[in-house]
């Protein structure tokens, strides 16, 4: 604790206070949206227009600009959820719990997009909508893990208890994800030859890589926007009896 400089500690303490978080995110939101839209426009322009078509796959490879960032996000959000849940569990910070809980539906959405776009890409490339490919399979199991988190949160009425349950489950999941991933990969190499999975990155060209990274960054900002919006609503509904919410609402009514 003594190693961390004072202003940073103060920043975190203030972030943990609901009214301050609510006001700050309200001010940040327009900026986040603008940055997201700029990154998205640049990424899409670069990916769909500037990048050359692939010499083997033609134009259909361009789905990676949605698929790959979503797949990255699906894992990233699970880790964020587990870390935030762990912080909430250890230091009993209400906002960390809310961040963990609000991340789950966004993460499930990204996982679903990654699955659907993977399947859409698979149709022209592999000839079928679904192949028991290692990555697709572990992504599917990840989706089930997300749905379990969402289902558990919905099933418990007391939301403080529910977010603790979600945090424990997310931590268990985050330990298990690498084990599941590698076991699925191992299973895949045993059951079918490397005919299909020969998709290992053939050292992607810079003109294709830059839009991909831009899209990945845009998706990060989208996640931030969606998660913060959910967190704000969750915060309001949990704190509906608190003084700051009541005074804010009455202030809004007067305006």
């Amino acid at each position: 604790m003594f190693l961390i400089p004072d202003p940073i500690v103060r920043f975190f303490h203030r972030m943990a206070s609901p009214p301050h978080f609510y006001a700050l995110t309200e001010r940040l939101m327009p900026w986040l949206v603008v940055i997201f839209l700029l990154l998205l426009a640049a990424g899409l322009y670069g990916g769909l227009y500037l990048a050359p078509p692939d010499y083997q796959q033609g134009d259909s490879y361009r789905i990676i600009y949605i698929h790959v960032p979503s797949a990255w996000m699906s894992l990233f959000i699970y880790v964020v959820m587990a870390v935030a849940g762990g912080i909430g569990l250890v230091w009993r910070i209400k906002l960390a719990e809310i961040v963990a809980v609000s991340s789950a539906p966004v993460g499930a959405g990204f996982t679903f997009i990654a699955l659907v776009t993977g399947s859409l890409w698979g149709k022209p490339m592999w000839g079928t909508w679904w192949v028991w490919d290692a990555r697709l399979t572990s992504e599917l199991i990840l989706l089930f893990l997300y749905l379990g988190v969402i289902g558990l949160y919905g099933a418990i009425d007391d939301k403080r208890t529910a977010s603790k349950a979600v945090a424990i489950l997310a931590l268990v999941g985050v330990v298990n994800i690498p084990i599941i991933h590698y076991s699925v990969e191992w299973w895949n190499t045993l059951h079918q030859g490397p005919t299909v999975t020969k998709m290992d990155k053939p050292s992607i060209h810079v003109s294709m890589l830059i839009p991909l990274l831009l899209m990945a960054l845009a998706f990060k900002f989208y996640y931030l926007i969606a998660m913060l919006q959910r967190a704000r609503i969750e915060l309001l509904s949990r704190e509906r009896n608190a003084y700051w919410v009541k005074s804010m609402i009455s202030l809004g009514a007067e305006r």
């Binding site: 199991i141 089930f144 893990l145 749905l147 379990g148 289902g151 558990l152 099933a155 418990i156 208890t161 349950a165 424990i168 489950l169 268990v172 999941g173 298990n176 084990i179 599941i180 076991s183 699925v184």
Partner: peptide, 22 residues
Amino acid sequence: LTIGLRRGGMLLSLLVLPLYVP
């Protein structure tokens, strides 16, 4: 995680089965 719930049965399978995969 689900012991306190009245209808935890289906939820339990959703929580546990993905972890059984390895």
